[in-house]
Nucleic acid binder design. Structure first.
Length: 596
RNA sequence: GGUUCGGUAGCUCAGUUGGAUAGAGCAACAGAUUUCUAAUCUGUGGGUCCAGGGUUCGAAUCCCUGCCGAAUCACCA
């Protein structure tokens, strides 16, 4: 039981005993006491005057007196306005501390038996990943780990958008001006190579449009009739008709891109349990359209196109099948959702997709509901805002896109520079150093992005992101490294860390009870974050804990003086801090080094 | 125009089911290193929580109106 629940329960008993009124413990408000007041937890008593018929102050006093004489764990109380501040005894904190230490599975919630699929990343195979994808990938990866920590069976998946006219554009440009260039022959990473031809296509296209306009064609018509664009469309049709030459080229270039993506994912420390390819799923959903027509939830227009009328729900009419019978994006999504739920027997499905698709997912859910699927309510769109740069939005046309690989490299380099400046790693092997630079650089990047509320448009300042102070990943990594350093030193000195020293009368300083309080709140923080699909909550928790530890570290000579039991108890405490930091940062996908 | 989401310190962001004098970091300034790692810590200054109204013991938080910003409203994906 958490301290908050404990107090609520006891307070409910107090009210029962004092005023002979029943009040549900869950309805009572208990919060952590603010720093400037004496006490550990605070019961808000304003609303309890109705039971006592007295002022909040008197009510607080009465309940406080009852608790301090009837609840041995409560050592003191004071009342300020309508707030009853309660202090726990040293015995209680020691007990709580022992519980945390002895729970090998601390912070991992019991199994829910629920199976959840989470789809994220979902890249197009015509260009490399950029900063926007990084936010997506990091969110998806950390949320999947968070849901696992919450006791769910999680399947990570990605849907590779490997077909469509945008892919044909890269292919076409490669055919025209590529001279047979390959990743091997050019030394370029596959996704970058293909991306270059996507850019090359746009150059060709732009010139064609210009010359058509110069020849007297209106702009909008020129944009539709540029020869290369028409050619790309013909290529798409050939692809759909399984034209061998087109398919071979497509398969070859896609394999380059996918290999490039794999490297980026590996550098980010991300993997998927299941990879779907749009080229194999894009025809799904037509069955559902038929079903919807039979059920009368869809309508067919005279031209043969099929629609779902959502005007009663405050939305528009949504197209599901074109007049020629071909499907559109949402048709495919309906089909894949149905397939996944039935194939995997899912309880929930989370989609990590940018907020420009909020409307799409609103519609998707609504249509699935109209089709009568009971799981339609268990679809969550984890929507995230755009990443902007100090000089504005990223625009691929203007070349202001931050490339994922470049960024990762840049973070690594900065971590390396800063580490070299500190000069603390001279005796470390080169191999370990490389690992460490990567861990720090990536930790900085991941933490910077994950700590921001997903739905907010965020500003990414490349310079500031590589800050190793303050609320950053490296700060937490550094805190961990310091703890490990102390533990190493303790081992050298032969100081034991025997759990038997944890007796109920071990004296604790205020800073130490604060640390225990924080540690103890971790499981409920995980539950809360899992509920809200918000790894940012975990990031902020980790920072709070690291900060609290650093303050403690500064004013407490951990290895100096004191009795053996006290010394041993302190070491166990900071060891537990390190272990909870590892758990929390593990959810964010951030590694913690033993030294740095 | 409709819908959805944002607006908190100079900047980047927290702020729990409505609770006490709204918090961090960065930047600025002033301090602390014979140390268990100073990549740290302490202090100072900095606020019309977009504006106005409402609900109540109590509002950054909930409701209404307005202002500003973003996304979206495709036979694109």
């Amino acid at each position: 039981m958490t301290p908050e629940n404990f107090i609520a329960t006891k307070a409910s008993e107090a009210i029962n005993s004092l005023y002979n009124k029943h009040v549900d413990a869950a309805s009572l408000q208990v919060q952590v006491t603010r720093k400037e007041f004496e006490g550990d937890y605070t019961l808000v008593v304003f609303s309890l005057s109705r039971f006592s018929g007295s002022t909040p102050e008197n009510t607080g006093k009465a309940i406080g007196e009852w608790m301090s004489s009837n609840v041995p764990e409560i050592s003191a109380f004071n009342v300020a306005k309508g707030f009853l501040n309660l202090s726990f005894s040293n015995v209680y904190w020691n007990g709580l501390f022992s519980e945390i230490v002895s729970d090998a599975n601390f912070g991992n919630l019991p199994s829910t038996g629920r199976k959840i699929m989470i789809e994220f990343s979902s890249p197009n195979t015509n260009k490399p990943l950029h900063l926007g994808h990084i936010r997506n990938n990091l969110l998806g990866d950390s949320v999947s780990k968070l849901l696992r920590a919450c006791g769910n069976n999680v399947i990570t998946s990605t849907l590779v958008n490997d077909r469509g006219v945008h892919i044909c554009k890269s292919m076409l440009a490669w055919e025209k001006v590529g001279n047979g260039e390959t990743p091997e022959s050019s030394g370029k990473k596959g996704d970058h190579l293909v991306g270059d031809y996507y850019v090359a296509f746009n150059d060709i296209y732009k010139k064609e449009v210009e010359s058509l306009i110069a020849g007297g064609m209106p702009e909008d018509e020129a944009e539709k009739n540029a020869p290369s664009l028409l050619e790309a469309h013909r290529m798409l049709v050939a692809w759909e008709h399984n034209d061998k030459q087109v398919r071979d080229l497509w398969a070859k270039m896609n394999s380059w891109v996918l290999k490039g993506f794999d490297e980026t994912y590996k550098a980010l420390g991300i993997s998927f349990d299941k990879t779907y390819f749009e080229s194999r799923t894009y025809l799904l959903g037509k069955e559902l359209v038929r079903k919807g027509l039979d059920m009368g939830v869809f309508v067919k227009d005279p031209d043969g196109s099929v629609w779902c009328d959502l005007t009663d729900d405050g939305l528009d009419r949504k197209l599901l099948l074109r007049g020629d019978g071909t499907s559109v994006y949402i048709t495919q999504d309906l089909g894949t959702a149905e397939k996944r739920f039935s194939e995997y027997n899912l309880d929930e499905h989370v989609y990590v997709v940018g907020d420009e698709q909020n409307y799409h997912f609103q519609v998707l859910k609504l249509i699935l509901k109209k089709l009568g699927f009971p799981w339609a309510d268990n679809i969550y769109h984890l929507s995230y805002g755009m990443v902007e740069l100090p000089d504005g939005k990223m625009k691929s046309r203007e070349g202001t896109v931050v490339d994922a690989d470049d960024l990762i490299e840049q973070m690594y380099e900065t971590a390396k520079e800063t580490s070299l400046e500190s000069g603390k790693l001279e005796d470390m092997s080169d191999e370990d150093k490389e690992k460490l630079y990567h861990m720090i650089g990536l930790g900085a990047l991941k933490y910077f992005i994950i700590k921001v509320d997903p739905k907010k448009t965020m500003l990414f300042n490349p310079k500031e992101s590589i800050d190793f102070n303050g609320n950053t990943g490296p700060f937490i990594q550094y805190t961990h490294a310091r703890i490990m350093s102390i533990l190493r030193k303790a081992d050298e000195k032969g100081i034991s860390r025997d759990l038997s020293c944890l007796k109920s009368d071990l004296p604790l300083t205020q800073k130490e009870t604060r640390l225990i309080k924080l540690l103890n709140s971790y499981p409920s923080k995980v539950a809360e974050a899992g509920e809200a699909l918000s790894p940012a909550l975990i990031a902020n928790f980790a920072y709070d804990l690291a900060k609290e530890f650093n303050q403690y570290y500064h004013e407490t000579p951990i290895l100096k003086e004191s009795f053996p039991d006290l010394l041993s108890g302190r070491l166990i405490l900071i060891d537990t801090v390190a272990s909870v930091l590892r758990r929390a940062m593990g959810i964010l996908g951030i590694g913690l080094p033993d030294r740095m």
